[in-house]
Design a protein around this nucleic acid. Structure first.
Lengths: 97, 97
DNA sequence: TCGTTATTTAGTAATATAACATAATATTGC
DNA sequence: GCAATATTATGTTATATTACTAAATAACGA
């Protein structure tokens, strides 16, 4: 018999939700293998407003997926745990089938 | 230099998005190891309306995560690829740290 | 066939998200 | 300190999501 506990998967769902947007998923991929990138690089590549990218980065940060680090005038972002890329690749592989 | 291709991560993001809701994530977990469950079991456990669960199941089905199979009056659901559970466990583990 | 049970579909209202413009903040170089 | 640059915060509007009610469909048993 199945039992659903209130708030049972809330925090985990938050992580998946954060990855559930094309731009955010792409950003995470760019941070593969410990690569760091600043906000302006994402803005240039994606072609949306600065504020929009910043908003997406905040979602990823709140979900605990990325961290940031200010150096000079620029804010650099990096993946917290590169293992998340295995997961994304696993999904991507299934899509190609 | 980063390059964002239009529609690049759209389909994959759809999968993450589908997992990005506590009830849906819980449902997927109940289907671990090839277990099958019918809609009414989910309804009883979660305590929301039938239509709401049905709607969530449709989201998971559209994302390609689960499949269904009608036997008698009941509709049974199962995981398409149990590998998705490794992924969920990976995220869950990080949350516990 | 008729009613009952299991489920999906359609329509609706409240809430959340996405993308934007603009204002505010922080760091650097002058 | 002041201007320029990089970024975040705030407020707004359009769109999407969630959970609901009620109606429709499908399978079964009397």
């Amino acid at each position: 018999m199945l039992v659903y506990e209130k708030n049972c998967c809330k925090r985990e769902a938050e992580v998946f939700k954060a990855l559930g947007h094309p731009i955010r998923l792409w950003i995470v991929r760019q941070l593969a293998d410990g690569a760091e990138h600043c906000v302006c690089e994402f803005v240039d590549a994606v072609g949306v407003k600065f504020a929009t990218i910043s908003q997406h980065l905040t979602v990823l940060r709140n979900a605990g997926i990325i961290s940031n680090d200010k150096r000079g005038k620029q804010m650099y972002y990096r993946l917290n745990c590169p293992c998340i890329l295995n997961m994304i690749d696993c999904i991507a592989q299934k899509q190609d089938e």
